[in-house]
Computed example of a mutant assay.
Amino acid sequence: MPIYDRSSPSEYEILDRWDSGLGWLVHPNEAGHRTSHAVVGEDDGVWLIDPIDAPGIDEDLLTLGDVRGVIVCSNYHVRDAEVFAARHNVPVYCPPWLSRAASQLDEPIEPETNSVGTSGFELYRCRPFPGWSEAVAYREFDETLYVPDVLGTSSLFTVSEEQLGMYLLCRFAPPRGVFEGLSPQRILVGHGPGIFESPSATLKSALDGARRRLPAALRTNGWEQLRALTAALGDRS
Results as ranks from 00 to 15, higher is better:
Tyr124Ser: 02
Glu161Gly: 07
Cys126Glu: 00
Phe196Gly: 12
Leu168His: 05
Tyr138Pro: 06
Glu140Ser: 09
Thr230Met: 12
Val39Gln: 06
Asn221Thr: 11
Pro9Arg: 07
Phe129His: 11
Ile3Asp: 09
Pro128Arg: 07
Ala102Pro: 00
Leu218Glu: 04
Leu229Met: 11
Ser7Asn: 15
Ser198Leu: 02
Glu110Thr: 15
Leu61Val: 10
Val178Ile: 04
Pro199Ile: 06
Arg68Trp: 00
Leu15Cys: 14
Ser20His: 14
Asn221Gln: 14
Glu112Leu: 11
Gly181Thr: 05
Trp18Tyr: 08
Glu110Asn: 00
Trp18Asp: 04
Pro174Asn: 06
Ser237Asp: 14
Gly32Glu: 03
Ala54Asn: 12
Thr230Gln: 14
Val147Ser: 09
Gly152Val: 11
Gly181Asn: 07
Ala102Val: 03
Phe196Glu: 12
Tyr167Val: 01
Tyr4Thr: 13
Phe157Gly: 09
Cys126Val: 09
Phe121Glu: 01
Ser8Ala: 13
Asp43Lys: 14
Asn114Trp: 03
Ala81Met: 03
Val136Gln: 04
Ser99Glu: 00
Pro215Thr: 12
Ser74Asn: 03
Ser155Asp: 14
His191Ala: 04
Ala201Pro: 06
Arg100Tyr: 00
Ser155Met: 13
Ala210Val: 01
Ser36Glu: 07
Ala31Val: 13
Arg219Gln: 12
Glu59Pro: 01
Leu22Pro: 02
Tyr4Gly: 05
Ile14Trp: 01
Ala232Trp: 10
Thr113Asn: 04
Gly234Asn: 06
Val90Asp: 05
Arg186Ala: 10
Cys73His: 07
Ser10Asp: 10
His88Arg: 14
Thr220Ile: 05
Asp58Leu: 08
Ile14Asn: 11
Asp60Glu: 02
Thr118Gly: 11
Glu143His: 15
Gly181Phe: 05
Asn29Tyr: 02
Ser7Arg: 08
Ile187Lys: 04
Asp60Lys: 01
Arg6Ile: 00
Arg87Ala: 08
Leu151Glu: 02
Tyr138Asn: 05
Leu214Met: 13
Glu112Ala: 06
Glu59Asn: 00
Leu123Met: 09
Val189Asn: 09
Ile187Cys: 10
Leu98Pro: 05
Val46Trp: 07
Ser200Val: 02
Val178Lys: 00
Ala210Pro: 07
His77Arg: 08
Leu123Ala: 13
Trp24Ile: 06
Arg219Tyr: 13
Met166Gly: 03
Glu110Gln: 14
Leu156Ser: 01
His191Tyr: 05
Ser119Asp: 03
Gly65Val: 05
Val67Phe: 05
Thr118Leu: 05
Asp44Ala: 11
Leu168Pro: 03
Thr35Asp: 12
Asp106Ile: 07
Leu156Trp: 10
Asn89Gly: 06
Thr113Val: 10
Glu162Phe: 11
Asp43Leu: 06
Ser200Asp: 15
Val159Ile: 14
Ser154Tyr: 10
Ile187Gly: 12
Cys126Asn: 12
Gly209Trp: 03
Leu214His: 06
Glu112Met: 13
Asp80His: 11
Pro55Arg: 03
Ser115Lys: 06
Asp16Thr: 07
Arg6Ala: 01
Ala137His: 01
Leu169Arg: 13
Ile3Glu: 00
Pro148His: 11
Ala216Phe: 07
Glu13Lys: 07
Asp106Met: 14
Val178Asp: 03
Glu140Cys: 03
Asn29Arg: 09
Arg236Ile: 15
Asp16Ala: 02
Ala54Leu: 10
Trp132Lys: 08
Ala206Met: 08
Leu229Ile: 13
Tyr124Ala: 09
Gln163Glu: 15
Tyr93Leu: 02
Cys170Ala: 15
Trp24Glu: 04
Ser160Ala: 12
Leu64His: 01
